[in-house]
């Protein structure tokens, strides 16, 4: 749900239900690094309500589009993490194992 105004779409608050810090903090991180964003922050109004408010203010672009882009960025990032991780695991499994491997502290 979006709370903003029709006149000025560059700032809006988005309410996401059934989400928490997991998504909100990740999105906040991505949005903060977007040069179009002047302000972004999130809050959980009450700990027993499962929802977060994400405030996005931009230099002019519609806040909705900027938020959408950030989610897309986050998805690409996740895809890359999965690929890299799978590669690393496959590489580890194919590695010949020495008898006594004492790497962990």
């Amino acid at each position: 749900m979006e709370h903003g105004s029709y006149q000025d779409q560059s700032q809006a608050t988005f309410t996401l239900t059934d989400e928490d810090h997991t998504l909100a903090n990740s999105v906040r991180y991505i949005l903060n690094q977007d040069p179009r964003v002047t302000f972004v922050g999130y809050s959980i109004p009450h700990p027993s309500d499962a929802r977060v408010n994400i405030r996005v203010q931009t230099t002019g672009d519609p806040a909705r589009e900027v938020l959408k882009d950030s989610c897309e960025d986050l998805m690409f990032l996740c895809k890359h993490v999965t690929n890299t991780f799978d590669q690393a695991v496959a590489e580890f499994k194919s590695r010949p194992k020495p008898e006594s491997m004492n790497i962990s502290p």
Partner: peptide
């Protein structure tokens, strides 16, 4: 771990489709 990453992806997808 790969399932966890997938869930984060799904969350993003949900937001995109809602917007």
């Amino acid at each position: 771990f790969t399932e966890a990453v997938k869930i984060l992806e799904d969350k993003c997808e949900r937001v995109i489709s809602e917007l």
